[in-house]
């Protein structure tokens, strides 16, 4: 089970934040195949998020083939993309962590690092 955190200042639609957080939890191994996602009512209780927003996010995840609804029971993780399963302990993860440590030692703050990551990503993933 995961807990969602809705950032009201991010400017990103709340349902997209949930989609993103589920995808991230899958990549990091926090969610595995067969796991249940929290019900819309329990997300509502914890984050005061409109239940329809959570359901919209779950429909989007279903559309992406990551989860499936079981009527009367809830929504479950149906597939974890094979490639992403090992991301948490891949060498790339370690290299990035090393890089972050060096950036931190060099005195870069959160915003500097975010700006560099965004710029580098834009260079290699032009359409994303």
């Amino acid at each position: 089970m995961v807990e969602f955190r809705i950032d009201r200042q991010s400017g990103m639609a709340a349902y997209l934040q949930i989609v993103q957080q589920v995808q991230e939890a899958l990549r990091l191994g926090i969610l595995a195949e067969g796991d249940q996602l929290p019900t819309a009512a329990s997300v509502a209780r914890n984050t005061k998020l409109n239940p329809n927003t959570t359901l919209k996010a779950y429909r989007e995840l279903e559309h992406l083939g990551l989860v499936e609804p079981r009527p009367g029971v809830g929504t479950f993780v149906s597939a974890v993309p094979a490639r992403t399963r090992s991301l948490a302990d891949s060498p790339l993860r370690g290299e990035l962590s090393d890089w972050m440590r060096r950036a931190c030692a060099a005195g870069l703050d959160w915003d500097d690092v975010s700006a560099l990551v965004t710029a580098a990503r834009a260079e290699h993933y032009p359409t994303a």
Binding site: R8, K48, L49, P51, T53
Partner: peptide, 29 residues
């Protein structure tokens, strides 16, 4: 949270007045 969860479980239509736009933006559709 209580209001949202109960409305979800019972399928209640809600009309609520508020001056808190941040709340309206997350609670209301």
């Amino acid at each position: 949270g209580l209001l949202m969860a109960e409305a979800a479980e019972q399928g209640t239509t809600v009309l609520m007045s508020s001056h808190q736009l941040a709340d309206v933006a997350t609670m209301c559709d």
